[in-house]
Amino acid sequence: MRIAIFNQKGGVGKTTTALNLGAALNRSGNPPLLIDLDPQGHLSSIHGKAPLDANQSLFSFFQEQHTLRELEVDWEHIGRLIPAHQQLIKVDSIFGKGPAILNKLRHGLDALEESQPDRQCLIDCCPYIGVLALNAIFACDCLIIPVSTDYLSLQAADHITRTLQVLEPVMKRRVNRYYLLTRFDRRRRMSDDVRNKLRERYGDDVLDTVISENVTVAESPSLNQDVFRHNAGSTGAHDYRNLLGELVERGSLPVTMR
């Protein structure tokens, strides 16, 4: 199963969700592959020891210098990572937007999964629609859209939904998607307002799990740790365990929990 994590608004928890959902999968006995598809490389920087050379990053895959398998690096306590590089920002201008480049990641993952069909894949996307994000959308089985509890993030979710409606006739399928509320503060009325509006618009596509505003979630990336390693008893760790459980229950992560 391939899950892309995408929102066109920054600061909503895309990378944090990729990191901690990956860690939750690993703790359940299902170490995933994480792909950093963002030229900013935040996920790769959290790894701490990912290669810094563009030729050892996902950019090399787009240049057809390496296969995805050749670019994987081990990530202790998580699984495996294919790192990003700032050179990814050039993909749009170098390769254009033809079908071959838009489907490149999908075809690469098809080949990679022939030998590891049961491994889950999480894709951390860049916060804008371009060749990179389109590669993720075309490749994924499911899209998680993190929505922080503010009105601008709600507008961004609406924009993504309209974008998907435009793309789906081209893809000839509906992209399965879930809206995940992040930075949820139960003391603020706005959090409940955003949740209610999201449910009115998208119904069952809104996940029941919310990711609470939590110090441990915010601090852990700066320590090159996931939320479980930083504080497994924290509210944030509890929320990400619940997220994994809900995705498994909904059938979007076909894994056996331990």
Rank of each mutant, 00 (worst) to 15 (best):
E113L: 12
L164S: 10
V131D: 00
C125V: 12
C126N: 15
L164D: 07
L154V: 10
I137N: 02
V131P: 01
A100Y: 04
G96N: 07
P146G: 00
D110M: 11
C142T: 14
Y151M: 09
K104F: 03
D118T: 08
C121W: 03
L134I: 09
C140Q: 09
P99E: 08
T163I: 10
D141N: 15
A100H: 05
P117C: 11
Q120V: 06
E113R: 14
D158A: 10
P99N: 06
K90Q: 15
L143W: 03
G98N: 12
A111V: 13
A157I: 01
V166C: 08
H85S: 01
I82C: 08
A111D: 15
P99T: 05
D158N: 14
L164F: 08
L109G: 10
I144F: 06
P127Y: 07
I144W: 01
L105N: 02
A84Q: 02
A133K: 00
P146R: 04
G130V: 06
P127I: 01
F95A: 10
G98Q: 03
Q116G: 04
P127T: 08
V91L: 14
R119P: 02
F95N: 03
G108V: 06
A133N: 05
V91M: 09
F95W: 08
K104W: 02
T161K: 05
C125P: 07
P99A: 08
L112Y: 13
I101H: 06
C121E: 04
L122D: 01
R106Y: 10
A133M: 03
N135K: 07
V131Y: 01
V91I: 15
I123G: 05
H159S: 14
H85Q: 01
D118Q: 15
I94Y: 13
L152H: 11
Y128L: 09
D110W: 05
D92R: 06
A100K: 11
L102D: 04
C142Y: 12
E114Q: 15
D124Y: 08
N103W: 02
L164G: 03
L112N: 10
D110T: 14
Q120P: 08
S153N: 03
E113F: 12
L81V: 00
K90G: 06
L109W: 05
L152Y: 13
I129H: 10
